[in-house]
Amino acid sequence: MAWYRGVTPPLVLAIIVAFIILFSYFYPGTFVDQLSSTIVNWVIIIGALMIWTGLINLLRFSVREVRRKVPGRWYLALFQVCLIAVMLISGFGEGPGSTAKGAKTVIMWLYNNYYIWAELALAGLSGLWTVTAAYRAFRARSLEAFIFLLGAVFVLMRYAPVGGAIWIGFPIVGGWIIYQPFTAMLRALVIAGGIGIIAYAARFYMGKERQAFGMRG
């Protein structure tokens, strides 16, 4: 089996572009860097086209669900189509700058009065679920869980004003946990993750990582 089996022209193009972007980091101010800047600008343009592809596909998908009257879905799909229409009309109708900060436009009204409140509702849910998750995580069911709980108590007491008042050692031990073992562990994880990304990139550069492009293997 030849090593180049399955390396198709789009994949070759993607690999060349990836190499240019990669080397522009190491050779700033050179021709490769300029070429990389041009490619990055093109990414924005291609990205805009990609959004349209996605949007048209989404509309087609939603309209089909409405036409088929898919139970439990069709009215949501209809709502989605209406929202897309409102956003498109308001966005294009009000022209460039319609999403600028402080602009009195329909699209910004929707953003300020609908989206931001939805995000705040999410933050409220997060707060509630932090407590339930913490309750479950802090049950000492094994030695590892007990060590986790012990570390958490010290860190918690470091930040709680009452911690230092109860025992002066809480802020010291809590600080040590954060700045010594936790930082070391996090750096180890980040380095390991970085190597994983390079391994993935190596597979990609050699034309072996094709599944994400819809190709087998």
């Binding site: 390991a192 994983g196 597979r203 072996k208 599944q211 293997g217």
Partner: peptide, 20 residues
């Protein structure tokens, strides 16, 4: 982290991917 990237190679069961 790297477990996920390794998993990406492992799921294909292809030897050149597992080489990474």
């Amino acid at each position: 982290l790297s477990e996920v990237y390794t998993a990406g190679a492992w799921v294909t069961k292809r030897k050149e991917q597992l080489g990474s």
